[in-house]
Design a protein around this nucleic acid. Structure first.
Lengths: 101, 101
DNA sequence: TATTCTTTTGCCGGATTGGAAAGTCGTGCT
DNA sequence: AGCACGACTTTCCAATCCGGCAAAAGAATA
């Protein structure tokens, strides 16, 4: 019923997070939070969700002596994101074909 | 927080419905239902939701003596759908660059 | 008026989402 | 050590949704 869409990536916040991560190697937790404009807790949950299905991975380390967290997409996550976007694209293109003349 | 995405069109079912309507003048209720594979009630609700924000309009008439309902997108709806897809596209572009071959 | 076909409404359960607040953990200061 | 602080994480909770079934409503025909 969801036409090839990946429900894990579908929620707006996830899409945005995935999109951000897709374009670079990794992004800092705080940066994602600011860009997507969601609360700490929500971002944390989404990253966990993405990590749980193997789409993202979270790395901890430090910068400026402070503990920081970087998130990044795994190969699987990149593929899934690409596939999801492709599905959306197909949807727009093919939908009309399903309608009988 | 939704990065230009149109939350009214975002739900999978709505996207599919809108995608179908976007390419033709109008589609019969039953056809949409079959293609999207959702129950009558759900489709009815989604169409109402789309109509409520002025994205779609529902026309009643008859075919073969039976009462039928046709749904179609309004100009506003088409614009909104196009904008939504454009927003998704902007996100997708990132993926293209980052996805490894 | 009964009956059939279509769509709409009510009602409910289940799953999410989001935020606030409290908890955790590692670091740095005293 | 003890404590404060920063950076997440987890808990708890309220608010949506979403979907389906079943009952209701509307139109047309017998």
């Amino acid at each position: 019923m969801s036409g090839g869409l990946d429900m894990v990536l579908h929620p707006p916040a996830r899409l945005q997070i995935a999109a951000m991560l897709a374009r670079v190697d990794d992004v800092e937790f705080a940066v994602i939070k600011d860009v997507v404009e969601i609360s700490d807790s929500v971002l944390s949950k989404h990253l966990s969700a993405l990590a749980e299905v193997g789409y993202a991975k979270v790395a901890k380390g430090k910068r400026d002596g402070r503990q920081r967290t970087w998130a990044s997409l795994t190969a699987k996550g990149r593929k899934a994101f690409a596939a999801h976007m492709a599905a959306l694209h197909r949807l727009a293109e093919a939908a009309a074909d399903a309608v009988p003349a």
